[in-house]
Design a protein around this nucleic acid. Structure first.
Lengths: 343, 343
DNA sequence: TGGTACTATCGACTCGTTTCGAGAGCGTGT
DNA sequence: ACACGCTCTCGAAACGAGTCGATAGTACCA
C-alpha cells in the first residue's frame, strides 16, 4: 500500500523522495519539513510528528549535495589518509567520534599508488571541506602553506617548518628519549639506534636518541645504523650488528616495522630477546601488539591527536582563531616484553 | 599582482572563485566555461584557451556539491570499508584505479567502533552514490536487499543467500581445498583445521577443508579445532594441539591472523615450522608477507575483486543490467616458507 | 474592539553547477 | 538576395535543499 502510494507520488520511476515529496504528503511547506528534519525549534509538535512519520514512510533521506550547497556552511572536515597505514586507521576512528561531538562530518580521501597527495586534497576541496586534516603529509611546507589559503590546514603527525600552519604531533625526540631513559634505568649502556632514513620524523627521533644518550653520559656508546621504515631495513641493520664483534645490549629502532625486522634477524641468529639483547620500536602499531612480538614501543596516542586536530579545525572555523597553533603531545612508553635488564 | 587582482574581483573576502568569476574574467557565459572545463566539445579553441588560462589564474576548482546537484548523474560509487582491515585497504586501492578508468569517483565511508554499517551506508547515500560497494558487510541479507532498492548493492567478499544482489567473492572452499591439495601433494595426511567461528566465510572454508580431505580419502584425519579470526584464538587452538598426544603434520588456519597465533604458540613450544609441522593461513594479508612469518597462504586477489565490483556497478548503472550477478573468483595459493614435506 | 506579543507556517530567493533550446554569426550554393 | 547548414555562444531553467522576512493565526489584555 505504502509502496504503491509513494511510487505514484514520485515522478514515475523509483527516484528518491525529495523534501517536496514529504511536504506534499503532510500538506505543509518544504520549509517546515526542513526545519523539522534538522531538529530546529519552530514547528509545532503536531507538525513535527506528522513530518517525521511521513519522512519515515517515504524512506526520505536528505540529499547531502543539496544541503551542502544551500547552507553556507558544510560542516565537513576533509581528511587525507593513507589507507594502508594501521596507525592512520586508528586516528580516523577517533576523528569520527571527535568530529561528531562538535557536529562535523568527515570526508575521507586516500592515498594510493596512483593517487598522490595533490589529487587526494583536491577531492577534499571539491567536496567543500571547510578544513583539511592531513595525516602525515609529505608535501613540502610551502605547498601546504599555499593550500592553507584555501582552507585551514591541520598537519597531523609531522613537524613542519612553516610557521603558519596548525600542527598536531607528538614529540618524537622525547619519545625516543623515554625509551633510552627506560633502558638506561634497567642498566643498559650499549644502546644502538637503527635510523629511519630521510624525513623530518626520522631526524627528530635520531636527535632524541643522541640527546638522551648524552644526557646519560653515554656519548661513547652512541651508534646509529642506517635503516628505514621497513622490516627489511631492520633485518639488514641487525645483520650488520651480528657481523660486528660485540652486540649492544639494546637496540632502539626507528619504528615498529623496523624493530620487527631486527627481532626477526636476531631470533634467526639464535640471539635471545630480551635475554641477550633488548629491542624497542616506535608507534605502538598493530604489529607491536601481536603477542608473538609483544614489542616494547612508544604510543603516539591516536585519540589525543584526533581530538586536538578536530579542536584545531573548530577553533579556526568557529572561534575565529587566526594564529597558527602547534600541539605537541607527549608520547607514551608502552612497556611490553622485548626489553629487560641486560644480561 | 594576480593575487590582488583576483581578490578584488571576488566579492570582498577570500571566497573561492565560482564559475561566474571565471566567466566574467574571460567575458563569456558560465555555460561556455562549464563546457570548457569539463572538456566537452563545442567551445572554440580560442575560448578554450582563454578560459583555461583564467581558471588557472584564479585557482578555480569546481564545487563538486554543485556539480553533483546539477547533473542528473553523480558518477559516484559509495564504498563501505573497514579502515582497520589491511585487506580492505588493498581493495580500495584497486577500486580507485578501476573506477577512474570508467570515469567514476569514490566516496569512502568507514566502520568504526561507534559507527555501524547502517550509519556508514547512510552517509554514502547522502552523498548520492549511484551504487554501493560493500566490503565484507555483516548485515543480514534482507537488510542488504532492502538497501538494493535505493541503489544497486555490490557485496564484496562474502557469500550471500539473497538471489537479488550482486556478489563478488572468491571461492573460499576452493581456496582451502587448494591448500589441502598442496599439503597432500607434499605427503601430508594428518592435516588439522583451525576454525574461524561463526559466519558464512568460516562455514565455507570449513566445508572446503572437509570436502578436500574426503576427496583425498583422508576422512579419518579430519579434525576441526574451534577458533576465530584472531591471533589469540590461533594460539589457544595451538596449545590445545600441543596438549594432545600426537601433533598433526600440518595445520591449516581460518585466516592469516589465526595462523600467526598458531605459529607463535608452536615456536614458543619449540616445535619447528615447517620442519615438524607445516602451517598455512588464508588472505595473504600484510602480516603473512612479513619475512619473519613468511606464511604460506591463499590470496583473494584484491585487484580482480575490485575490478569486478566496479564492473558490476557499471553494468547496473550504464548498461541496464537488472539481473543479479555473482562473480566467484578463484583464489590463488601463495607458497611461502611455512609449508614443507612432512618429517 | 483594537492592540500587542507570540507562535506556526509559508513563499520566494539563494547556493554553484549543468543542461538545453534558442539564436547569433558566418560561409556556401542557388 | 535568400535559404541552408554549421559552429559557437548564451540565457534561463533546473537540481534539492536551506534561509529569512513576511504573514496568518491565536491568546491575552485593556
Amino acid at each position: 500500500m505504502d509502496d504503491a502510494d509513494s511510487e505514484r507520488r514520485q515522478n514515475g520511476g523509483n527516484k528518491r523522495p525529495r523534501l517536496e515529496d514529504v511536504a506534499a504528503r503532510v500538506g505543509v511547506s518544504t520549509a517546515s519539513v526542513s526545519l523539522v528534519l534538522r531538529g530546529v525549534s519552530g514547528p509545532s509538535e503536531r507538525t513535527r510528528q506528522r513530518v517525521l512519520k511521513a519522512a519515515a514512510e517515504l524512506g526520505y533521506q536528505a540529499d547531502r549535495t543539496a544541503s551542502l550547497l544551500a547552507s553556507r556552511r558544510t560542516r565537513l572536515l576533509g581528511v587525507m589518509v593513507d589507507v594502508h597505514s594501521p596507525y592512520h586507521a586508528e586516528v580516523v576512528d577517533f576523528l569520527h567520534t571527535a568530529a561528531e561531538e562538535v557536529g562535523y562530518d568527515l570526508v575521507l580521501s586516500t592515498l594510493t599508488r596512483t593517487r598522490d597527495e595533490h589529487t587526494a586534497v583536491d577531492t577534499l576541496l571539491a567536496f567543500r571541506s571547510e578544513a583539511l586534516i592531513l595525516l602525515g603529509p609529505t608535501s613540502p611546507a610551502d605547498t601546504l602553506a599555499a593550500l592553507d589559503r584555501k582552507a585551514p590546514v591541520i598537519v597531523v603527525g609531522r613537524r613542519i617548518t612553516d610557521e603558519q600552519l596548525d600542527v598536531v604531533r607528538t614529540a618524537d625526540d622525547d619519545g625516543v628519549g623515554q625509551i633510552v631513559d627506560h633502558l638506561v634505568g634497567l642498566g643498559h649502556r650499549a644502546i644502538t639506534y637503527v635510523d629511519g632514513g630521510k624525513g623530518v620524523i626520522a631526524t627528530d627521533r635520531r636527535r632524541g636518541y643522541r640527546t638522551a644518550m648524552r644526557r646519560h653520559g653515554l656519548d661513547a656508546h652512541i651508534k646509529v645504523l642506517r635503516g628505514d621504515n621497513t622490516e627489511a631495513a631492520g633485518e639488514r641493520a641487525a645483520r650488520r650488528l651480528l657481523d660486528g664483534t660485540t652486540l649492544p645490549t639494546a637496540v632502539v629502532a626507528f619504528n615498529d616495522q623496523c624493530a620487527i625486522g631486527v627481532l626477526a634477524a636476531l631470533s634467526r641468529a639464535g640471539v635471545a630477546v630480551p635475554g641477550e639483547v633488548s629491542v624497542a620500536g616506535y608507534d605502538d602499531d598493530t604489529l607491536s601488539r601481536l603477542s608473538c612480538f609483544n614489542l616494547t614501543t612508544v604510543s603516539q596516542n591516536a585519540e589525543q591527536q584526533a581530538r586536538h586536530a578536530v579542536a584545531a579545525a573548530v577553533e579556526r572555523l568557529d572561534q575565529g582563531r587566526n594564529d597558527p597553533c602547534e600541539v605537541v603531545l607527549s608520547p607514551q612508553l608502552v612497556v611490553r616484553g622485548t626489553v629487560a635488564e641486560p644480561a
